[in-house]
Write a protein that binds this DNA or RNA. Structure first.
Lengths: 235, 235
DNA sequence: CGCGTTTTTGACTTATATCAACTGTAGTGG
DNA sequence: CCACTACAGTTGATATAAGTCAAAAACGCG
């Protein structure tokens, strides 16, 4: 269950057996969510930390008129709200994009880790810092790049994140996002996403069907995306 | 020198005298920068932590073709790179937008604080977490809002951040940004920023001249911006 | 005063949005 | 196994917000 998170943390440091076992025994229980359910809602102050075990979710925020922005995708091994101990309320919601399994870790266990296992604590802080870097680079993506580059960039990022978490060895990943989901993240309409996808397919850069994304030409895709993986801080 | 940072941290917790003095004695020295200089460049691994004492700076990243995105503004009291102890290299640059004074805090002093002063350490972690929330909401701003709402939102945010740091008591703030600077942050061209500013002025929401921004009608501006201050986590 | 930078203006272009219809597909139940 | 439904993807026609280019005006500083 903790394999993707552990693989990810390995890019910062090697953890000892004790640390691994502490982390793996931290979750109290596991919860199932249907597609479209909220794991946590804006304004809430959760008392557990959630970790994605299966499925996709997103950080999102809705405006009063119903339009919604996705501010980040969460996949296996990603922590939803490691910051609960610091912030009094959620300033955004977390919603599943597929049916999903989520591990619930009591806040006290996290606090214990931060007190007693400094190296593990630093590794978790590191992953929060990397998440922040990812967030920052989404601004760049949405603010500066063309529609085609944005979609290509998202695909590059997700592929690398899957690889980092040991979730794929070839250039294929599960991609259960609808074109509407992608649009909400990239600031584009679903119609336009559709047209951009067709162009990426025509250029033989990707294949996307039946919720599977195959990156046929990673170098070519990176070029379209102007992608530089430094911000993912992969060792 | 540390007043704005201390004022900011007060929104998380009250610090003791000892903690305040530890923080205030942390900087080794101070450095002057001209407008447009890099405080830290992408790829570097700084050994000191920088704190803005005077002037404005920005987190930014340039693409190969020369276009640049600003991913965040830094004002008095903001830490530029509190994460140096965690990340091996900067994934973006920090550049001054005005002439600026920056305090340099040795990495060891930061590490000492994180070891020996848990409450102060938590307060600094809190401010990093708030910075991340601000970053996340910039995605929303650039991805979802109209040009007019984006500019209005930026002004609301900066006003609140100035107030939080005790840098203004009325609705006036120093705003040394050029229209080009604003465009780089908001994903808009300077020409379009100019036209949007004129509309905001016509609606009697703001005044902006001689590098001074006056918010004449904060409620009205918030409405145009669809601004909700929850993400700033002000107590 | 003069020079570089910033702001402003106008004419024109373009990427992306909007709207609306049609097609395909996966899942459900009879 | 087929009919039915709901949702996701696709297509085309048209609209619009924001971009581009270029020049003029205003500002600010040595």
């Amino acid at each position: 269950m903790f394999d993707p998170l552990l693989k990810k943390l390995q890019h910062y440091t090697d953890l000892g057996k004790k640390e691994v076992s502490v982390l793996c025994s931290a979750p109290e229980k596991t919860r199932q969510f249907d597609k479209g359910e909220h794991i946590i809602s804006e304004g809430e102050n959760p008392v557990v930390v959630h970790m994605m075990v299966e499925g996709w979710a997103c950080r999102c925020k809705m405006l009063s008129d119903g339009r919604e922005q996705i501010m980040g995708y969460l996949i296996k091994g990603d922590m939803c709200d490691l910051h609960v101990t610091l912030l009094s309320h959620m300033d955004h919601s977390i919603r599943t994009l597929t049916s999903a399994t989520v591990a619930m870790i009591p806040q006290e266990s996290i606090e214990q880790i931060f007190e007693d296992y400094p190296r593990l604590a630093r590794a978790l802080s590191w992953s929060m810092t990397v998440d922040e870097a990812i967030t920052r680079h989404w601004i760049l993506n949405v603010g500066l790049r063309s529609a085609e580059a944005r979609v290509a960039h998202l695909f590059c990022e997700m592929l690398l994140r899957f690889q980092t978490a040991g979730l794929t060895s070839d250039n294929t990943i599960d991609m259960p996002l609808t074109q509407t989901n992608m649009g909400e993240a990239l600031g584009l309409t679903p119609v336009h996403i559709n047209r951009v996808l067709q162009r990426l397919r025509q250029k033989n850069l990707i294949t996307l069907a039946h919720k599977k994304l195959v990156v046929l030409d990673l170098e070519g895709l990176k070029e379209v995306a102007e992608f530089d993986d430094a911000y993912l801080h992969i060792r």
